[in-house]
Amino acid sequence: MPENMTHVPYYPGCTLKSKALGYERSAMDCARSLGFEMHEIEKWNCCGASFPLTKDNLMGLTAPTNILIETEQHCKERDIDAKLITLCSFCYNTLKRTDFAFREEPGKLKTLNEFLNREYKGNVTVIHYLEYLRDVIGFDNLSKMVKTDLSHLRVAPYYGCLLLKPQKELGLDDPEEPVILHDFLDALGCQVIDFPGQVDCCGAYLIMRNPDKVLELSHNILEEASEYGAQTIVTACPLCQSNLDQSEAVRGEMPILYFTQLLAVALGLETEQHQFESHCIDPKSLISSCKKFKEFSDAK
């Protein structure tokens, strides 16, 4: 394990501490293996899960602003760059858009600071874990660290909505034809299944009001991925995972994985704590079909 781990402040959010524990654990294990340590910021609250779309709703910005303030504090105490890494698409979207809103309209930041009686200076860069892999680690470097042969796996990347939209504010990738998950899977050595439903909405929070509609939308995505030959789908969002997984439990047997769970397999890490069993469709048989490359299996 590398000695000089880069310290990266991390915001988990509600779902990563409960239903998506496997996402968090696999992401943290992979990070250590890749040379960075995700440090949870000391005090955090729920981000609100959805960025308020109406401009006058400043109350919806209080929760994410508090998180940004805590991040600034965390980084100042350690004298490190004010960067915040996130895993959940909702958290990423909400925090990044809040920061963007303040950069666009400094008056809003002034109002929030006065209301909260604290100060956000506006220095935090919110990034997604995938962004860190692409821009800091580099997919080329990542491909050199792969220890497991995934060349037989046909994996469909599923992006969902809030990881990419609005592009003007998030800037992670093209919202209609994204490539970041494709490139990630390519680096792991899988067969990447490019299918049209990759940016379709899974139904998201409508599960609270109209679960049938969500199952239908998710079903369409799954059908399409199957038709294109996918054996599994990877996603970055716990709600997408949950909606697709629940729908798949009715439809078929295709496991829905977090991209970090597959990354852990690729890096040859111990995955016992990564909660594969918490998914409706257990990916264990798929995972056990992935063997380490000879030079690494011999070493063990």
């Binding site: 959010g13 509600c14 779902t15 409960s18 609100g48 959805s50 919806g60 959940c88 929070y205 599960i207």
Partner: peptide, 13 residues
């Protein structure tokens, strides 16, 4: 339920 669905559902509904 997934926690983020509950929170965002409450925000929207």
């Amino acid at each position: 339920s997934t926690q983020q669905a509950v929170v965002s559902g409450f925000r929207k509904f």
